[in-house]
Every structure is written in structure tokens, then in C-alpha cells.
Amino acid sequence: MFELRLVQGSLLKKVLEAIKDLVNDANFDCSATGFSLQAMDPSHVALVALLLRPDGFEHYRCDRNISMGMNLNNMSKILKCGGNDDIITIRADDGSDTVTFMFESPNGSANFEMNLMDIDSEHHGIDESKCCAVVRMPSSEFQRICKVLSSIGDTVVISVTNEGVQFSTRGDIGTANIVCRQNINVDKPEESTVIEMSQPVSSQFPLRYMNSFTKATPLSNTVTISLTSELLLAVEYTIAEMGYIRFYLAPKIED
């Protein structure tokens, strides 16, 4: 049997809002490590990795590892049936082809049962050690930059140097360049921009995906953007001390 109880149910709603437009179907893996997911968008250009650790739940019981295939749009529909301040319990019996969502508020409770699906998924081990540039910045600022740039062009070039991180695009009406320099705010660390770099790195990515990733902005005040030496982009939002949601994006390369 698998059962988890999340007092701050709105967190799970925000997680679904962050990924449901990027990924259609995904296997939620339940194990002693936590409630996790790894899935790709239909074009296989982006990969999402989610982890919610057991200690972040009021109750977490996982008798054996299970994988629950869910359609994220349907899961989102069910989560929207619960109130924002509701406590959410998710339960699945071993071998069952359904999962139950229970919403509790001081005024009452509601149960929804959703059919599970069989989903073939491809797991990738992400090698974080090849990371050569890491930028931590306010998530709202990153969201604003992606939105602004997508009004000009389709592709963003992200360049990290000693000068800072530069986001550039080009379109029919002209070009745009936005530079963020390191800026440490001791009083409000969440408003800081921190750049760690072992070597300058530059690569280009479709803005459509970047804008999709920023749907996770309500989960965290800060975002961490990493580029590996092989030019894989990782965009990470931490989830209130209980885990993270990471988006990985493959680069555009020259012909």
C-alpha cells in the first residue's frame, strides 16, 4: 500500500500547474526516497524531474516501490476539485489500477478515484558533475526575462562569463540583450543574483520551453540555472525544503 498526506495541498497543485502543459503522461514513482517523477515532453526535447521527500509529508507510507502512470491533465482536473487550503491524501493499494485523492478541510472531505495508465518511460541518469556555470537569481526576474525575450524572438542565447549572465534573442523586429550581474543582497538573499562559473559557456535554447519552465515560479522565490560543459541546461526550483522540480533542456546546435 502507498499513502501520503500533504498538509499544504496547494504545493501539489502548484507542481501540477508547473508541468501539466509540458508533459502529457508520466509515471509517479513511490519509494523510500520519496514521491518522484521523471518524464519528457512529447518532442523529447525537455525532461522534468520532480522529487518530494518523505519527510516533507505529514504521513508517508510506502510498503513497496510502485509506479503510478497518470495523465497529468486529468490529475490536475482532480486537484482543482479540492480547495486551496485543503489537506491532500493520495492512496493506492498494491496492484490496484486506480489511485484515490482525498481532500480535507475543516468543513468536510471529498474523495476522487482516478484510473491509472500503463506508460512506457525512459529514465536518464543526469550527471550534475559536468556543470560548468550556475546562476541563482530571483525566479520572478527569470520569468520576466523569458517573457520579454519571447516577444522579440524564438530562441534565447544564454552566455555566462565573468561579467555576468547574458540572455539574448533576435527576431524580425530586432534584437534584445539582457545582462544580469552578480548582486549579493545580504538582507534579502532571495533577491540576490549569484554566479558560479568554472569556464565561460554559451548555448541557445527555444524560448517556448523556457517560458513553460517558468510556470514553476509560484513554487520558489529563487531559480537556479545551470549549464553543463556539454550544454545541457537545467532550471531548478526548490519546493519548500521538501524537494525540487528540475527541468532539463537539450541545446540547439549549429548545423
Binding site: S43, V45, E122, Q204, E230, K252, I253, E254, D255
Partner: peptide, 14 residues
Amino acid sequence: KGVQLSITEFYRSA
């Protein structure tokens, strides 16, 4: 303007 790699292609080429 370049070719977009998929995650699978990226890991194959990396």
C-alpha cells in the same frame, strides 16, 4: 539557426 537536439540525441552525442 541550428538544430534542436532531443534529450535522447543529446545523451547519444555526449
